[in-house]
């Protein structure tokens, strides 16, 4: 049991998620979409109908923010930043070796393994034609292949900028357009016509 917990807490997979802005922000937004409505529903001082309305509104807000972030913000900033960095840091080796973000991230993933695992992974069909001979030699022969932290820094910096613009400015506007029609559709919010009828 303790061994399992220690393995989880020192897991390299969890570490790569925690070092990846897009993944960690997505997980946190997902948690918010559960945690915040749960806190509203747990409030005993508020009447049940109001609680359900507020919790559903909060859930829809966070869920649409997450969907917008994952569908638009991540792909745009992920690919755009690498292209821009290729122009700004054109003399840097990492931007000459790798075509795009995914190409570099695949390299980084393999470079973090031990030598035997690296050789075995490069033998798999998926990776056979992915890298040039120069990169393959680096991965197969060196003990600690270069991580090219500049390329990783560019990706993470653009993810942070994208997350800020996306989650603080763009996604709330999108969710504002979606939340009220959805609440009306599921019957939790009355439209103007039915309001006047009831009055």
């Amino acid at each position: 049991m303790i061994g399992g917990v220690t393995n989880f807490l020192t897991s390299s997979t969890l570490s790569s998620i925690s070092q990846n802005t897009a993944a960690s922000v997505s997980i946190e937004t997902g948690l918010k979409s559960i945690g915040r409505p749960a806190f509203i529903l747990a409030d005993k001082k508020i009447e049940p109908q109001t609680k359900r309305y507020a919790a559903m509104k909060e859930f829809l807000y966070q869920a649409t923010c997450l969907a917008t972030y994952m569908a638009i913000i991540i792909p745009v900033f992920k690919n755009g930043s690498f292209k821009l960095a290729k122009k700004i840091f054109k003399e840097e080796e990492c931007f000459k070796l790798f075509k795009n973000t995914n190409h570099y991230l695949n390299y980084r993933k393999i470079a973090s393994m031990n030598k035997n695992d690296r050789v075995a992974t490069l033998g798999k069909e998926k990776y056979k034609n992915m890298f040039s001979k120069e990169i393959k030699d680096k991965l197969m022969t060196t003990n600690n292949p270069e991580a090219y932290n500049l390329a990783k820094g560019v990706i993470e910096c653009s993810n942070i900028i994208g997350s800020v613009l996306g989650l603080a400015i763009f996604a709330p506007q999108v969710s504002h357009l979606i939340v009220h029609p959805v609440l009306k559709f599921i019957g939790m919010e009355k439209d103007e016509q039915s309001k006047t009828k009831t009055n």
């Binding site: 109001t50 609680k51 507020a54 807000y61």
Partner: peptide
């Protein structure tokens, strides 16, 4: 009115 008071970080 009540929603605005209880909302934690919503719209």
């Amino acid at each position: 009115a009540q929603t605005a008071i209880l909302k934690v970080g919503g719209l």
